[in-house]
Amino acid sequence: MAMTLRLSPEQDHALTLLASASGTSKHEAAVRAIVQAAARTLADAQVQATARELLPGRKQLEDEIRRARRF
Rank of each mutant, 00 (worst) to 15 (best):
Q11A: 11
Q11H: 04
D12S: 09
D12K: 02
D12Q: 06
H13Y: 12
H13W: 05
H13N: 06
H13L: 10
H13I: 01
A14V: 05
A14S: 03
A14L: 10
A14P: 00
A14H: 06
A14R: 09
A14C: 03
L15P: 03
L15G: 02
L15E: 02
L17S: 10
L18N: 08
L18K: 07
L18S: 10
A19V: 09
S20E: 15
S20G: 11
S20K: 09
A21M: 07
S22I: 09
S22L: 12
S22N: 15
T24A: 08
S25L: 09
K26G: 01
K26A: 05
H27Y: 07
H27D: 13
H27K: 14
E28T: 15
E28K: 15
E28I: 13
E28R: 15
E28A: 15
A29M: 07
V31L: 14
V31Y: 04
R32V: 14
A33I: 09
A33W: 12
I34T: 14
I34N: 06
I34S: 14
I34V: 15
V35N: 06
V35E: 15
V35P: 00
V35C: 01
Q36H: 09
Q36M: 12
A37N: 06
A37F: 10
A37Q: 11
A37P: 00
A38N: 13
A38E: 12
A38C: 09
A38Q: 12
A38M: 15
A39S: 14
A39D: 10
R40N: 11
R40E: 15
T41K: 12
T41A: 15
T41N: 04
T41W: 02
L42A: 12
A43W: 10
A43V: 07
A43I: 00
A43Y: 13
D44W: 04
D44I: 01
D44H: 03
A45T: 10
A45P: 03
Q46M: 07
Q46G: 07
Q46R: 14
Q46P: 02
V47T: 12
V47L: 08
V47H: 06
V47N: 02
V47A: 08
A49G: 07
A49S: 10
A49N: 02
T50S: 11
A51K: 01
A51P: 00
A51C: 02
A51E: 08
A51T: 01
A51W: 03
R52I: 11
E53R: 07
E53V: 00
E53Y: 01
E53T: 07
L54P: 00
L55H: 09
P56V: 01
P56I: 00
P56N: 04
P56C: 01
P56G: 08
P56R: 01
P56H: 03
G57W: 03
G57Q: 05
G57F: 04
R58Q: 04
R58V: 02
R58C: 10
K59Q: 15
K59D: 12
K59I: 05
K59Y: 03
K59F: 00
Q60D: 08
Q60S: 11
Q60R: 04
Q60M: 01
L61Q: 06
L61A: 13
E62D: 14
E62N: 01
E62Q: 08
E62W: 02
E62V: 05
D63K: 13
D63A: 12
D63G: 06
D63N: 14
D63P: 04
